[in-house]
């Protein structure tokens, strides 16, 4: 099982005001909030952590069959080269993120070694393939300008 999540940073800027009172506290653990407040680019850190959580949730949700909205229960640690680990209860998911000026894309797998094998495609509007479902992607993520598929 694979996960992936893309954040269109230009859309996120206008769609979400993470500086709103109590916003961060609903989503991020104390450690994650510290990463955000001490980051040189806090906006980037918010959406990097968010895409890690979302990509891991997409695997965890299918694995457990549990659908919920509990972003704070997914706890992120970030390692060198934007590799990461997302833990929830006794499960761990491994992530790798691609941070660009216009988007952040994270891929997730249940095993670290699997990350290397993941193939992905990112399309910006208006170049989204109409028939992408026929390529049977392992996970689809869509936000703003972008469509991201993993195989």
């Amino acid at each position: 099982m694979l996960g992936n999540d893309i954040v269109d940073l230009n859309l996120a800027k206008i769609q979400s005001n993470w500086r709103r009172k109590n916003y961060l506290d609903k989503i991020f653990t104390a450690e994650e909030q510290l990463l955000i407040t001490s980051a040189k680019a806090p906006d980037e850190m918010v959406w990097l952590l968010w895409s890690m959580k979302e990509s891991a949730y997409k695997i965890h949700n299918r694995k457990t069959g549990i659908r919920n909205f509990a972003p704070k229960s997914l706890s992120c640690t970030i390692h060198a080269n934007t590799y990461g680990v997302v833990s929830i209860h006794n499960c761990q998911y491994f992530t790798q993120s691609n941070v660009q000026s216009a988007f952040i894309h994270t891929i997730a797998a249940p095993f670290y070694d699997k990350l290397e094998e993941i193939k992905f495609d990112i399309y910006a509007l208006p170049d989204h393939p109409v028939d992408y479902k026929s390529t049977q992607p392992g996970c689809v993520s869509h936000h703003g300008q972008y469509l991201a598929l993993v195989y």
């Binding site: 996120a12 769609q15 979400s16 005001n17 993470w18 709103r20 009172k21 109590n22 916003y23 609903k26 989503i27 968010w50 979302e54 909205f69 509990a70 972003p71 704070k72 229960s73 936000h143």
Partner: peptide, 22 residues
């Protein structure tokens, strides 16, 4: 958008003057 679900939760807290636990 899932990031906006948080806004809905915060708006609900403000509008109804209640606290929504995790």
């Amino acid at each position: 958008n899932s990031a906006n679900l948080v806004d809905i939760v915060l708006d609900v807290e403000e509008k109804f003057n209640i606290e929504i636990d995790n």
